[in-house]
Structure formats: structure tokens, C-alpha cells
Nucleic acid binder design. Structure first.
Length: 736
RNA sequence: GGUCGCAUAGCUCAGUUGGUUAGAGCGUUCGAUUCACAUUCGAAAGGUCCCUGGUUCGAAUCCAGGUGCGACCACCA
């Protein structure tokens, strides 16, 4: 044996494990299963992935050694918006955009791009020692997964839990898609609050409104004041003239107006502001909501002013239009700085534009209720400080889920529209090959020479939300009835498919897997995606099976650098886990990430810590080396025996209770200061014999194996393994 | 504004259901070393466990309030 442990033999050991069949479940009745959180298929691993690999692999190896039938099911996610966003950035480097391709070509190109990169993540997981069942590997765009996801949507539709509605949605003009409420970030910005005078039509004066968005005045349909506001009560019902246009709008009363903000008078732009939308929605006698909104939408899906804003403003960007309005009305002089939060796209960081668009929504109330009950009954237990309370808050306040996305990279919705005979009712909204928006009746589209079917099937352009006002059919295949059937061009929100992950991976896998492994034992993931993913899995898992998708949820925290700072490219403190594996070994990295970590809490890991754990690898190695050469014939030492039993009992208990951080810390101390510092010295002094020391070393190799699989396996091979197939990974866990 | 969390050694953090002298890694000081390992060993220094009050025979741990920090959520123009 070498004097120091050399970790470069790790990949050889990994191959031996993989070839031995140890990663696939045995026929034991007792099942233990973890569905791996699928990383994005086109991303290389970051240190957060190393964290989940470490924790899950520890649990999986522990239960495997206990003799259970263990399934750790790996996979990757197509990560719709994320991936398309990355791909579009790549296109932009070549001076291209998504509009240069038709739907099918773009999809195929992204597919090739993802396929090219998707092997990387898997190889890296293997380098970290992940003993996952690669034979059952799943991708969210596997044909079986896609049809399962579509069937779920059909089931939801049959159960009347899906509806299509035109609502104000969070739309990113740059990414060209709407988002759910969860995907919008907020950023505090200092903008200007402008004051605009709207002259009363009776010539008695003006009413001054305050706004941060003067360019939307073309979309105003009213001015609202609080009915209790004495300054304005006399004006309610009067009309004002919109500046820059000749349009007249009414002054109306609404309790929601804050008299203390601005001037106490609010311009109402229902198509571009959620508050204004709600004001118009409430005022049913005065306004037909959808008609009003449609007529007064002044910003298009391309982020530019529409024809409704008038000839001078049409096709100007929102920002340019604002500058122009400010200049023309000389608003700068009365502007005040104003700090407020604006919604920004969580991908591209540009401002989110609330726009009225027809989208598909899933009613969430019937889905969240059983989850809350399951939490009450402890059918599912959340491990992670305070995270259960957060989950409950989410479940209680969740709004209907917008599941449609206007991107190509994803699962296309199994929805069909029959537009025949509806040419004068169907409105169409899309962006053509030149990036120009078209919006209007189908009849007009035909008159312009466009072919809707060709657009929708993607032979010409990428289309953004397609048609409204037509009854739709939910099914995978094109309906056989007569008509002009157009398939919905939207794809599903990524979380709609990944939200079914535990169910779909097991149902589309080997026969009997679902029955054997569902509900899964543990869901281990980052607390950051608790609302996006864990909550959706619980909702859809319970909806589809009537049972929770997992019994325990272990939430790990963010991995921070040695100074406790968040890793970020701008700080330059991002570490590549594979570099660390090459330098110190996978065992050292795993142990450093896990030791003393607590669920739900962030973890700082600096290089000195990893170095310290590399030293532990070496310590294990050298203890083995010592025993290989040591010989002593003393009778059994009773103190050593009881101490060993205590260590076994304590470690097992920690792991049974998912206390991975404590188990590792405990083992470190007991092995180093107990076995090495104390008992090896005792052995040298002659108070313990070889056979007992070997016995105890074997116990420690087993206990340490889930944490540091490579070095322990090598040491096992040095002393204990009798033949090629005798591996520590499948050795029996010590009993007390 | 709402919700949740954190505050323990110089730094980064553990501390299971309240129970003897409060722990680890890294760092610091002193010493050792042909004897498994200098990727080592022995020893030491270093803490009013944020503050105040309460419950208890007993509180780092439970409760209330305060202070500081952080995360997430939030349509007020």
C-alpha cells in the first residue's frame, strides 16, 4: 500500500460497482426509493448538485447496505424557458433570433444542442460517486413521459380543472412568453412619478393624475378617485379629455384608490395594470371588461406600442414612447423620484409587462386541499427549519396556475381549435418572421394572405398566443371531425411536467416499479424550489394517485463560499465541483458538503474544509495500512467492544432519522479520535489484538462507506475482500 | 407591508426529546516525531451560547418582548 491515499483510482472503482449490478434494486420486500431531482439537461453541474448527490447517495447506500430494495432514479429536465433562453443567447451571438426559424427547426436545433450537452451532467454525477440506477434514467421529453403529461392535462380537463381565460398575465416581451406568478422577480427601482393634467370637458379646470407610466395614457379608459375624497367628489361623473388624443373618459369612484398617494387621482389603464384591470372588472355597468381591454391595449407582445396608441406612437418601444410623451407634455418639470418595486423577468431580468392574453389555467384549490390535509396527518413530513410553514402559506394563498408558455422548447399542449366558420370571431395574435406583430380577426389574416394552419404547424413563423373565442378540444391526436383544426402553439410550463416526476418516472418505467416504489421514501432537494417544484409534485402526485408522492422531504440549503457569501459569477467565487474532485477526491468534497449541515439551512464550504476531509480519507487509508502490517494476539477487549456497539447504534439512529449532517460529524470524531488516536495506540501498547482491531475497522469502513464510498471501498479491497465480486457497497450494515 | 428563519470560540458552523466541566473543522501558541499517517501526534489559549424578562430542581435548548442580520412573498398608480 502507498504511504498516502491516492484518489485517482475512483473511476475504476465506480465501474466495478456499476458492473456488479449494485445500483439496481434487489428483490427484498422492503423498498427504499428516491427520485433524483432532474438537473437541466444542458447544464454542467454546479456545487449545489454535488450537495444533493452527496446527501442522496448517502441515504441510498445506507439503505442498500441494510439489505433493502433500493431505487435511486435519475433523470434530466428539458427546462423549457431556461434552455430556450440559453439557446437564444447563443443565437444572438451569431446575429440570429428565434424568428429566423420555423417551429420545427428551432425545436430540433435546441434538441441537438441539449443532446450534445446532456451527457456531461451524467458523467459528472458518476464522478461524484452517485450510485444511481442509470438503466432507469428518464428525460422529461421522452415520448412516454410526454404522453403521460398530456394525459394528465386531459384528466384535469375532464375533471373541469382546466380553463382558458383572457387575463392580465406576466409577459416578458424579450423572452416572448408569459409566466406564472412564481416566475416573476421583483426589483426595487427608482423611477419618476409624473403628473399629468387631464382637462375637464366642461372647461372648469383639470384633474391631475400621478403615474410612473405616462406612455400608457393612450390606453386609459377612466380616471378613478376615492369616493370619500372631498377634493374630487364634485367631479365624479364628469368627463375629461385625454391629452395627445381627442378621446373623452369619465371620472369614476373606486374605494381602492389611496387618497394619500400622488394626487389621489389614478388613470385607469386596464390592459396594462392589474389594479386598473380590477377596477374595470368591478364596474360591470360601465364596462365590458374584455371588449374594453381589447380596444385599449396599447402595448403589444413585441413590447412595442400598438396602433391603438396612434400613428405617432405605433411601433415605438415602451421606453421611447415614454420619453416622447414626457417631452410633448413637458412632464419633466413636475416629476418626482419614486422608489417602487417592478416585476422583472427571472431569466432575462427585463421589465415584465402585464398584458391581457388568453392562457390556460389550472384551478388549484381542489389540488392544494388534499396536500394540506396530508401535512396535517403527517403523511408527508418536511425536514428543514421553518419550511413547512412556508409551504402551508403557499398552499393556502396560491392562485390559479397559468400552465401555458409561448415557447417552442417544451411539451406542446394537446389542445385543438376548430376555426372553421369562426373567421369573424377568432382573434389571432402572432409575430411574423420580421418580428412584426399581427393582431386581428382571422378573416383579416386570411385577407393579408397568411395561412393560419401553416403558421400554427410551424412551417413559416414562430407564433405567440394563437386564437381566442373558440371552443377547444383536449386530446393528443388531431380530431377526426370535419373542420379546420389548429393545434395550440403553446407548450406546458416546465413545472407542469416536472411536477409529475415521481409518478411519471415510475409509471413509464419497468413493470411493477410504481407499485413497489410509490410513494417514494425521500424527496431531497434545494429549499429554493419548494414552491415551484415540491408543492407542484405534492399537488399533482396526490391528484393522480390519491397518495403523497414521497413521505419525507429533506431540504438542503444553498452552498456558500468559505466566507458565507453566495456564489456568483460577478464575485468570482463560483467553484466547479469537478475541479475539487480532481484535486481532493470525491470523498473529500462529499464529506465537506455534508458534515455539520442542517436541513433548510445554508452551508458554507471553503477549500480548507475540503482539504481537512481529504486528510480524513488519508487517515482511513493509513489506519488500514497499519492493520495490514500489525499483528497481536491479545484476547477481546470489552471496552472496545461496547464502544464499537455504541458507535454503530448512534450512527444508525442518526441516518434512520435523516440526520445526515450529525451522522457525518459524529463518525468523523469517533473514527479519528476514537479508533485512531485511542485504539490504535492501545493496540501498539498490546491491549488489543489484531482480529478485534480488524473487526472494528470493518465496522468503521461500513459506517463510513455511504459518506466516503471510494476510499472505504479501496481499503475494504485491501484487507477484507475475498474475491472480485466481494464489494463493500453491497456488504451488510453492522448490527448491534 | 406579510411570512419564515438566523444570532454559540478569531472564521465557518453543529448541538437530537431541556440534564454533569458547551462541541467540530479551519486558524493561533507551545512541544513531539526514524515507531500507520507532517495530509501526523500531544498539550494549550480562546465562549456573559445577542439583550431583557418568564416557565423549571435545572435553559444554548421552551415562552414573551427587544435589537441586529438574512431569505422568500407582495398589483398600490
Amino acid at each position: 500500500m502507498d504511504k498516502a491515499y491516492n484518489h485517482t483510482t475512483e473511476s475504476e472503482l465506480y465501474k466495478r460497482w456499476e458492473n456488479s449490478g449494485a445500483f439496481t434494486p434487489n428483490d427484498s420486500k422492503k423498498a427504499f426509493s428516491i427520485i433524483m431531482p432532474p438537473p437541466n439537461a444542458n447544464d454542467p453541474l454546479h456545487v449545489g448538485h454535488a450537495m444533493f448527490i452527496a446527501i442522496e447517495d448517502i441515504l441510498v447506500r445506507f439503505h442498500r447496505m441494510k439489505g433493502e430494495s433500493v431505487e435511486w432514479l435519475p433523470g434530466t429536465d428539458h427546462a423549457g424557458i431556461e434552455t430556450q433562453f440559453v439557446y437564444e443567447k447563443k443565437l444572438a451571438k451569431d446575429n440570429k433570433s428565434r424568428f429566423d426559424f420555423d417551429r420545427e427547426t428551432l425545436y430540433k436545433n435546441i434538441w441537438d444542442y441539449v443532446e450534445m450537452n446532456s451527457g456531461v451532467a451524467m458523467t459528472q454525477m458518476k464522478r461524484l460517486g452517485a450510485s444511481a440506477d442509470w438503466g432507469r434514467y428518464k428525460f422529461t421529453l421522452d415520448p412516454a413521459v410526454v404522453s403521460f403529461v398530456c394525459e394528465t392535462f386531459q384528466k384535469l380537463h375532464n375533471d373541469k380543472l382546466v380553463y382558458r381565460a383572457e387575463k392580465l398575465v406576466n409577459y416578458c416581451p424579450h423572452c416572448g412568453t408569459a409566466y406564472s406568478e412564481l416566475e416573476v422577480d421583483h426589483e426595487e427601482r427608482t423611477d419618476k412619478l409624473y403628473h399629468i393634467d387631464y382637462p375637464l370637458t366642461d372647461g372648469t379646470g383639470v384633474i391631475t393624475v400621478a403615474t410612473t407610466r405616462p406612455e400608457t395614457l393612450f390606453g386609459d379608459v377612466a380616471v378613478a378617485v376615492n369616493p370619500t375624497d372631498k377634493r374630487y367628489t364634485a367631479l365624479i361623473g364628469k368627463k375629461v379629455k385625454l391629452p395627445l388624443t381627442n378621446r373623452e373618459i369619465e371620472i369614476i369612484a373606486d374605494e381602492g384608490v389611496d387618497t394619500a398617494f400622488g394626487t389621489g387621482a389614478v388613470k385607469i389603464t386596464p390592459a396594462h395594470d392589474p389594479f386598473d384591470w380590477s377596477v374595470v372588472e368591478k364596474n360591470k355597468e360601465k364596462f365590458d371588461l374584455l371588449e374594453t381591454v381589447n380596444k385599449h391595449t396599447v402595448i403589444g407582445i413585441n413590447g412595442k406600442m400598438t396602433a391603438n396608441a396612434g400613428k405617432d406612437y405605433e411601433n415605438l418601444s415602451v421606453f421611447k414612447a415614454r420619453e416622447k410623451v414626457v417631452a410633448e407634455l413637458d412632464l419633466e418639470k413636475n416629476a418626482k423620484p419614486h422608489i417602487h418595486n417592478v416585476g422583472i423577468c427571472y431569466r432575462c431580468k427585463r421589465v415584465i409587462e402585464p398584458l391581457p392574453l388568453p392562457q390556460f389555467f389550472v384551478s388549484v384549490a381542489p389540488l392544494t386541499k388534499p396536500v394540506l390535509e396530508a401535512l396535517d396527518k403527517k403523511d408527508v413530513v418536511i425536514h428543514g427549519t421553518g419550511r413547512e410553514a412556508i409551504l402551508r402559506t403557499w398552499l393556502t394563498n396560491l392562485r390559479d396556475w397559468n400552465v401555458s408558455r409561448q415557447i417552442v422548447w417544451g411539451i406542446r399542449m394537446p389542445v385543438w381549435h376548430n376555426v372553421e366558420g369562426h373567421e369573424t370571431e377568432v382573434s389571432v395574435n402572432f409575430i411574423d418572421a420580421k418580428g412584426k406583430q399581427h393582431k386581428g380577426l382571422l378573416r383579416d389574416l386570411y385577407a393579408e394572405g397568411f395561412d393560419l394552419e401553416a403558421i400554427a404547424t410551424g412551417l413559416q413563423q414562430i407564433i405567440v398566443p394563437i386564437v381566442s373565442n373558440v371552443p377547444f378540444v383536449v386530446q393528443t391526436e388531431k380530431p377526426s371531425e370535419e373542420g379546420t383544426w389548429i393545434q395550440e402553439t403553446d407548450t406546458f410550463d416546465t413545472w407542469f411536467s416536472s411536477g409529475q416526476w415521481p409518478v411519471v418516472t415510475l409509471k413509464t418505467g419497468n413493470a411493477g416499479d410504481f407499485e413497489k416504489f410509490y410513494p417514494t421514501s425521500v424527496m431531497e432537494t434545494a429549499y429554493e424550489i419548494l414552491p415551484f417544484w415540491v408543492m407542484r409534485m405534492l399537488m399533482l402526485g396526490m391528484y393522480l394517485t390519491g397518495n403523497v408522492p414521497f413521505k419525507d422531504v429533506y431540504l438542503h440549503g444553498l452552498v456558500r463560499d468559505g466566507q458565507g457569501r453566495k456564489m456568483s459569477k460577478s464575485v468570482g467565487n463560483v467553484v466547479n465541483p469537478i475541479d475539487l474532485v480532481e484535486k481532493y477526491g470525491a470523498d473529500a468534497l462529499r464529506m465537506a458538503l455534508v458534515m455539520g449541515s442542517t436541513p433548510g439551512q445554508d452551508k458554507s464550504v471553503g477549500e480548507p474544509t475540503i482539504k481537512g476531509m481529504r486528510n480524513l480519507s488519508n487517515k482511513i487509508w493509513n489506519a488500514t495500512r497499519f492493520l495490514k502490517e500489525f499483528s497481536g494476539e491479545q484476547p477481546e477487549n470489552a471496552e472496545l467492544k461496547t464502544w464499537t456497539l455504541k458507535v454503530v447504534r448512534q450512527t444508525t439512529e442518526h441516518l434512520d432519522k435523516l440526520r445526515v449532517g450529525q451522522a457525518s460529524e459524529y463518525l468523523y470524531g469517533e473514527f479519528w479520535h476514537g479508533y485512531c488516536d485511542k485504539w490504535i495506540e492501545e493496540a501498539k501498547k498490546g491491549s488489543v489484538g489484531t482480529s478485534q482491531m480488524e473487526e472494528v475497522l470493518l465496522v468503521f469502513l461500513k459506517l463510513l462507506h455511504p459518506f466516503m464510498p471510494f476510499v472505504t471501498e479501496r481499503c475494504y479491497q485491501e484487507i477484507f475482500s475475498q474475491k472480485e465480486s466481494d464489494l463493500l457497497i453491497t456488504a451488510a450494515w453492522p448490527t448491534v
